[in-house]
């Protein structure tokens, strides 16, 4: 009972990380791709939107890691060994993104001198989600094998497969879409900028459908357990709900109902991650490491549940306060 609860809190943290921290990476991608007469204004809007909140959003990832190694120490150990290379690469991306962003905003020089920070920020923002998608994808491939708590398939298994790579591209697409949708609300007072981000949201949102198709097709041989999971009874329902959210997001954007679009886009991303983990459940690292066989002793899980509950009591009001303060007046992010 406690181990699945820990797995659910892991999933929830991951979903919130995607919805908040993921969107900040997407914002970085749009910074990199800023173009046209309003390129500087776009960059400014992106920076203003993420500056007060990105550090808090980033902590969701730390929470994911901490809950993973506390509740599923065996799983953590196996993942960190088998996926040592892509995870190290992801860390480089995280370090470069965060520091380039803060360096750019505190560089006293005028814009031309800051340009290399911009490029680094944008490049790292675009690159990190790809590798994050690859890591999650690799965990589902079933190519990483573990016996007696030790990884037996080396450090290249899983993450170099077409399936994992398509997951990487899909993750970037999702984060870019989320960011563009959020930015339509962040630029509410500036119709030109809002139109720019609406166009970007519509494009990236439409591109998600073929990307999702590729992930699905490569899953057939690339992640058979996951693929099989998607044939269970709940799968069509979940798929329908996800498509509804996706269509709702695009429709909302088309009709300029941006709050609706944001809600639908967030729902879409949350449902994709939820469906993903349901299809993979009970495996953490398919097929050998499961929620049950890698979990910590009951006493640890019980204390963790207590810590999460107590932490949540402090955290949630604080987060609401943060987002109210900076995203209020109809500019809230979920």
């Amino acid at each position: 009972m406690l181990a699945p609860a820990a797995a659910i809190s892991l999933l929830l943290s991951l979903i919130v990380y995607a919805l908040t921290g993921g969107a900040d990476f997407g914002g970085g991608l749009w910074d990199l791709l800023a173009s046209g007469r309003r390129a500087q204004a776009q960059r400014k809007a992106i920076a203003a939107a993420i500056a007060p909140i990105w550090e808090a959003n980033h902590v969701w990832l730390i929470l994911v890691v901490v809950v993973l190694f506390t509740a599923f120490p065996g799983g953590f150990s196996a993942v960190m060994t088998a996926l040592n290379i892509p995870i190290s690469v992801m860390l480089v991306g995280i370090v470069l993104r965060g520091s380039a962003f803060i360096f750019r905003s505190h560089d006293p020089r005028p814009e031309p001198g800051r340009r290399h920070w911009s490029r680094l920020f944008g490049g790292a923002s675009a690159f990190t989600p790809v590798i994050q998608g690859v890591i999650l994808g690799a965990m589902a491939t079933g190519r990483i094998r573990v016996a007696d708590g030790r990884v037996t398939t080396g450090v290249f298994a899983g993450w170099l497969t077409p399936f994992a790579l398509s997951c990487g591209v899909f993750a970037l697409g999702l984060f870019a879409f989320l960011a563009a949708v959020y930015l339509t609300l962040d630029t509410r007072g500036e119709p030109d900028l809002q139109a720019d981000f609406r166009r970007r949201a519509l494009w990236s949102g439409s591109a998600l459908w073929p990307m999702a198709g590729i992930v699905y097709l490569t899953a057939r041989s690339g992640a058979p357990v996951l693929f099989h999971g998607l044939t269970r009874w709940w799968a069509p329902l979940l798929l329908a709900a996800t498509c509804l959210c996706g269509a709702g997001a695009l429709g909302g954007l088309w009709l300029r109902r941006f709050s609706l679009a944001r809600m639908a886009a967030a729902g879409q991303v949350a449902l994709i991650l939820a469906g993903w983990s349901l299809a993979q459940y009970p495996c953490l690292l398919t097929p050998d490491v499961t929620v049950a066989n890698s979990s910590a002793p009951e006493v640890t899980l019980r204390l963790l549940a207590l810590a999460l509950a107590a932490g949540g009591l402090v955290l949630l009001p604080s987060l609401v306060f943060l987002f109210r303060l900076f995203k209020g007046d109809g500019r809230r992010r979920p």
Binding site: V67, A307, A310, L315, S318
Partner: peptide, 19 residues
């Protein structure tokens, strides 16, 4: 894992309020 989880929340609070 316990102190690390609590650290996670303390750090979370710090990150929120520094913003």
């Amino acid at each position: 894992g316990m102190p690390f989880s609590l650290e996670g929340f303390a750090f979370f609070t710090e990150a929120i309020f520094i913003g």
